[in-house]
Structures are given as C-alpha cells and as structure tokens.
Design a protein around this nucleic acid. Structure first.
Lengths: 144, 144
DNA sequence: AATAAGAATGCAACTTTGTTGCAAAATACT
DNA sequence: AGTATTTTGCAACAAAGTTGCATTCTTATT
C-alpha cells in the first residue's frame, strides 16, 4: 500500500484512482498547487469537475490546506502529518510566494508570530504569506 | 471639491463619474470590498468592465490595496493617507475576516510582526489575515 | 467471489467571473 | 471652444466554477 492510499484510508475516504493520482501530484510537488496546476497534470484522465470535488473533499478532511492569494487563484498544499491525522488544521507556518517564479511554498519551520487583536475580536485562524525572491531564484538571478 | 475628487486628482487620474462613484463606495464602506460588492452597488450605472478597469487603476495608483482570501474573491480596501500620497504601498497592518458576518476589515492599529525567513529568501511584502469573530458579531451573538 | 448499497465520476448544461478590441463618449489641455 | 487623449460601454469571447443526473466504481456483507 503506497502513501497516497494510506492517507486516503486514514482519512476514511474511499480509494479511487482519481484521488490517488491527485494526492500523488501533491506528494510529488515541492510547492503549493492551484486548481489549474492539477488540471494541467491530469485533466486528460480525470474530469475538471472531479478535480474540484476532490480538492473540496481533501480540504474538508484536512489532507490539504489552502493558501490565500491576491490573484484569485487559491493554492493548496499538503498538510503535515499531525494535521492529517487529527482531522483538522494545525497549520501554523508561514507561506512564501516567489515574485520571480511564482511558486508558493510552505515554510514549515517558520511559525507565525502571534498578534494581539483589539478588544472585542476573537481569533480563530491566522494566515501569513510573505512574498519576495526564493532560494532557488536568488541563486539563478545574481543581483547586479 | 469633495474627497473622492481630491484623491483622484492627487493620484493624477482624470476625474470621471464612475471613478468618483466607486471611490465613494470605498469611502462609505467600513470594510473591504470584493469586485462583486461593488458591482452590486453600481452595475446599473457602470459597466462591469469599467469596474474591473477602475479597480485595476486604483491598485496601480496605490489608492486601494488588495487583501488575499482563500475563496477566490480578492477584496480591496482603501489605503491610508500616507499610502495614497506616496504612490506606493505602506500597508503594514493586519486584516481581519469575520467568520460570522464575512466582513473583512483593516486593523490599522495592528501592525504585522516581523518574521525571520530561512537563509536564501528575501522579503518583499508580508500579508497577514486573521479570521475569527469581530467586535460587532461578538456583541450580537452572546456565547452560550 | 458475488452482490447490493452507497459513493464517486463523467457528462452536459449552465452561471459566474474575467478579458479584449473597438467605436463612442467624456475629460483635460491650450 | 476645439482637439488630443482617456475612459467608457458594448459585444464577443475565454476561463473558472457549479449542479443534476445517469453510469461506474468501492466497499461492506454475505
């Protein structure tokens, strides 16, 4: 039993070829993916609608989490083990979006600092997205 | 000369009825607005396309800034005075999204704490969105 | 292993959202 | 006021997302 299958079972989801494929795409990716990215990789085999529904299901089960963007293309990334097993989100890490290659990645080791909200506000989730130049692009494009 | 007109002129934009109207909508609003919100309020008078182009222009001129979301509906909010006059963004405040009323607001007084990125990453912008229950909703829905 | 119940998928049709080119209208400049 | 320049609205289109339903696949049970 491979990894994707294990994850699906532990989330009490039925194991289907489509779900395994999409999950594998996430497992292979080293960055967050938009719906479109996934569609490009497997729309020949699986319907667009299936991809929408699968992402929705994965979100609900806490297999993936979404990362807000300012360009109307929400990105999704695998949750870490703790998150998946507990069934709800413990994503307390910062996300990084590269201005050059446009990739979005989870900075699993950088946790979101706490903030104090004004009186009357109660906090549920925090999201933090930093943009800039990523490690890989910095190496390539040596600043003048 | 009213406020919207002043802002447009100081951003060296030609003053048109549509731009004034959209800017007034922002000035009246106490929360961030999605394209859709604006469309609802004035699509009878101004074309959808005009709204898209106007928001784009306002963004470029630094009159508004956008707030990332996880629901594919980017929201826009007025920038503060400093930001508008300087022509580029100094939005260093936290945004709050209420899970109950879905309104997104700028917490102008809460500034985004700094984070240390891993070696090799350089920072450009930071975005922070906190979700939870806002002041107004808290008052209304007394927790059991 | 066969089967039946339930879940997931694909398809079609549709709605909503966003984009582009171009002619008409409005604005700003002198 | 007249003209160059911008902005707008329209039309047509492209892309993104949703819904209902019939078919296929999974899973649990015998």
């Amino acid at each position: 039993m491979n990894k994707s299958e294990t994850i699906l079972k532990s989330s009490s989801l039925s194991v289907t070829a489509g779900r395994k494929r999409i999950l594998d795409i996430f497992l292979d990716a080293n960055n967050a993916l938009a719906h479109q990215d996934i569609e490009v990789k497997c729309s020949d085999k699986y319907d667009r609608v299936t991809i929408y529904r699968t992402l929705q299901t994965f979100l609900e089960k806490g297999i993936i989490h979404n990362i807000p963007t300012t360009d109307n293309s929400v990105r999704y990334a695998l949750c870490n083990e703790v998150c998946i097993s507990s069934g709800h989100h413990h994503d307390n890490h910062v996300h990084f979006r590269c201005d050059n290659c446009s990739k979005t990645i989870c900075l699993d080791d950088v946790s979101i600092p706490s903030v104090k909200l004004p009186t009357g506000y109660s906090m549920n989730e925090i999201n933090m997205v930093v943009s800039g130049i990523c490690k890989t692009c910095k190496k390539v494009k040596v600043p003048v």
